[in-house]
Every structure is written in structure tokens, then in C-alpha cells.
Design a protein around this nucleic acid. Structure first.
Length: 223
DNA sequence: CACCAGGCAAGTA
DNA sequence: TACTTGCATGGT
């Protein structure tokens, strides 16, 4: 880690102590905000490049109609799905993405999430990435937050916060960024769960896209 | 009013 | 491989 004047002995110390500072500041986040693994999956697809508040409206529409279930949603006309998830934006493409996932779930696991989550981590990750509409972040979110697998989720905030603090360049690849965390933390799903959630919190509060650097924040142990 | 949000795939060169 | 563009609503 070539970062002068920082209080970390090495990268591992940095990654570990930043987690501790965030946890001390924000407390446990207990993600994902959902009542079931399927709700996590739907939310993970709907939140692609979309504010969570809008996703909540869409999830609420589905939940109120009792449609937050693989069988029922799979039997629904695309036009009806699109109508319900409209508040989350990109509703036509997201309808296709939900259908693509459901098609995968029914063809490979006869519609059973329990069966799906019996797969090995790497096998299931490959399978999810093969679904049109599910990229690395969505796949890892499903694996970690719905399946409880020990995989670290990288998002725009992760790259922004940690590149601004010198851990890598802002155009770092998903896998390189993910490797930084997974190589320097124990493979603990509970830890990865909290860490990603805390990064999103601190990112929302102090690391906006517009500003050239992070404002002073709990992460600013760098001065 | 402009800009952004817990991405992804398809198109182009 | 490396860029660019479309997708769309709702909050600040």
C-alpha cells in the first residue's frame, strides 16, 4: 500500500481497522432489508442503478398483492409485473431480468431457492452470471444476502470510497476490488454482510459522486 | 432546473 | 479489448 502518512501498518491493518471504525460509528446494519431470500433477490435486481427508496415502493406493490413468491411471479404476465415495479425505474428491462432469473430457478432447481442455495459458491456464481441481467454485483448480493455465502459485494460506493483513500484507482476492476477485501479479511459471511452495508452508509453520507474527494467522515483517520 | 441512485447488456470501433 | 449508449422513476 503506497499511501504516505496513513496510520496503517499495512493493507490488512487498514481494511480491518476501517471496518472497526465504521462499525463503531454506525453500529450493526443487519442487511439485507427484506423478509425472505426471494425478496432479497427481487430487491437486488430492482436496485440496479436505482435509489433504494424507489425499490421499496416497487417491493411494497408486489408484497401487498402477495406476489413476492417465485411461483406466483413466474405465472404473472410481463405487463403486470412491469406495472407493479414501475416506481423502481427501467421497469421493462427489469421485468425481463426477473423473468430471466425465474426461468433459471425453475429450469435448474424446479423453482426451489433451497435447492439453488445448496450449490457450491463458485458453481452458483457462474450460473447466476450466466443469466442475462445479473452481473457481478447482483450475483454477489444474491449469494451473500440471500444465500449466506462468504462473498464480498462491491458496488460504486466501495470503489469510490476506497479509491479516494488510495487503496486503488477509481477504475479498478470488480474482481481486483473484491480481492482487496477478501484477501485481507477472514471468509466470514457475517463480516462481509456488515462491511458492505457500512460502506454504503458512509458513502451515502460522505462520499458523493459530485465532490472531488470525501468530506470529513468516520473513515477520515487519514489526517 | 440538473443531477443522481446499492448496474447491466448491447452496440460500435 | 475498450468505450459509449439506452434503460426510467422519483428524490434533492
Amino acid at each position: 500500500m503506497k499511501r504516505d502518512g496513513l496510520p496503517f501498518k499495512n493493507t490488512q491493518d487498514g481494511i480491518t481497522s476501517i471496518f472497526q471504525k465504521l462499525y463503531d460509528h454506525y453500529g450493526p446494519q443487519r442487511w439485507w432489508p427484506a423478509e425472505s431470500p426471494f425478496e432479497v433477490i427481487v430487491g437486488a435486481i430492482l436496485t440496479q442503478n436505482t435509489a433504494w427508496a424507489n425499490v421499496e415502493k416497487a417491493i411494497c406493490n408486489l408484497k401487498q398483492r402477495g406476489l413476492l413468491d417465485p411461483v406466483l411471479l413466474n405465472g404473472l404476465e410481463p405487463e403486470k409485473i412491469a406495472e407493479h415495479i414501475k416506481p423502481s425505474g427501467y421497469y421493462n428491462i427489469k421485468t425481463k431480468r426477473l423473468k430471466s432469473f425465474l426461468n433459471f430457478l425453475f429450469k435448474r432447481f424446479s423453482g426451489s431457492l433451497d435447492k439453488m442455495f445448496k450449490e457450491e459458491l463458485e458453481t452458483l456464481r457462474e450460473g447466476l452470471l450466466n443469466i442475462s441481467g445479473i452481473g457481478e454485483e447482483t450475483a454477489d448480493s444474491i449469494l451473500l444476502y440471500a444465500g449466506g455465502y462468504p462473498i464480498f459485494v462491491v458496488d460504486a460506493y466501495t470503489k469510490r470510497v476506497f479509491s479516494r483513500h488510495g487503496f486503488f484507482k477509481s477504475d479498478v476492476s470488480y474482481l481486483d476490488c473484491q480481492r482487496l477485501f477478501m484477501d485481507n479479511l477472514s471468509a466470514d459471511a457475517g463480516l462481509f454482510n456488515e462491511y458492505h452495508a457500512l460502506i454504503v452508509m458512509v458513502g451515502k453520507d460522505f462520499c458523493k459522486k459530485k465532490e472531488p474527494v470525501c468530506r470529513e467522515c468516520p473513515l477520515n483517520v487519514f489526517q
